[in-house]
Design a protein around this nucleic acid. Sequence first.
DNA 1: TCGACCATGTAACCAGTTACATGATTGG
DNA 2: CCAATCATGTAACTGGTTACATGGTCGA
Lengths: 211, 211
Amino acid sequence: MAGKTDHTLSATSAALLGQLAWADQSSYELAKAMGANIRFFWPRAGSHVYREVKRLVTDGYATARDEATGRRPRTVYAITPRGRAALAGWLATPSAGFTSENEPLLRLFIATSGSKEDLLAAIRAAREQAEEMMDIGDGLVAQFSAGTHPFMDEVHIRALTFDYIYNWAILTRDWADRTEAEVIRWRTLGPNPGKRRRAVARIRAIAKIRS
Amino acid sequence: MAGKTDHTLSATSAALLGQLAWADQSSYELAKAMGANIRFFWPRAGSHVYREVKRLVTDGYATARDEATGRRPRTVYAITPRGRAALAGWLATPSAGFTSENEPLLRLFIATSGSKEDLLAAIRAAREQAEEMMDIGDGLVAQFSAGTHPFMDEVHIRALTFDYIYNWAILTRDWADRTEAEVIRWRTLGPNPGKRRRAVARIRAIAKIRS
DNA sequence: TCGACCATGTAACCAGTTACATGATTGG
DNA sequence: CCAATCATGTAACTGGTTACATGGTCGA
């Protein structure tokens, strides 16, 4: 730990510095980009970006300069050498894992306290969100195919994140279809021997394909 | 909105009430269960459970009674009728969607600011976590197959959450394999025409399987 | 010229986390 | 009998969100 780079970055700060490493940007642009791409694996509210980027400045990882769009003033941020070093330092750090917050799944888990229609609605909500993700993905495909995406030079990276996210959406949609089909067969949400048999069989079949 | 059930539950409170609907439990047991199952789609720190369940009591959704395990005192919580009503009310509410925080993916996204080895380490971290999830899943399979799981009466529900989580783990592992194989081919993390061609082809192939 | 939306930002609240503390039980 | 781990809980911090406010631009 001896040295001048004591990179105590949070992952969110790193995300912002990573964006600034590509180009100088205003908070609004940073927030928009978070909303466009990063949100699928690191979602943050726009207002948070404003505060966090100011911290980057006070810590010396970025500088702020005042510009104007038309007659309106705005602040544009740029990464500093110290910021680049901190970012590289953070990237050399062991990565945390991945988590998800999946409210439809939570609702399913405790569904026996509600109605069958409630549960079906939650499953359909998951399906709809998955479809929306795929629509957004299809838009990206068009841009990258046509070579019109603003970050064509990053496409070799973006293809890899795209791979994950799009397949995650497909997984969710397909799961929702299977699950809806199963729940529709139920008369109540309670247990019965037939359901139990099918459930155990399903669980075993899923785990068997691990290989 | 006229009525006595003004269920202003958070999803986390609902998760706790859902647990209490199955059986009276102490905070510790609730927290343990959150760590065992729910964490994969609704992760919460144990200490949070302690505070939140006390709020359930002050709001009249649960009651607390003092017991003792051996000579040590502990507090056991039980759901009230009002709590059941609030839970049912919440379940009837439209569901929010699903999100994820995936630090390996974030690191990949901004990987050009770091080294190739950093990136490979992040990908491997994702793979390892996926394997761990599958190991846990295999343990569940054994329990459910043998009929020894403490919540056998919920297996028809658990099979459906299991389906999602296990397939998510498989997806992650397979993605990590593909992605590692691709990155290993790279000499640098920067762009080049070959990488770009392959990337665009990959993106198109993924989206094509949407069917 | 007016409504809608883009762009820019602040403030206050709160959910969630980390860190700590300590008593009981159990296995070696 | 001692270390490890289970069990129980508190306190303090902080990251993140929701809600608000308002100026500018553009198209109908």
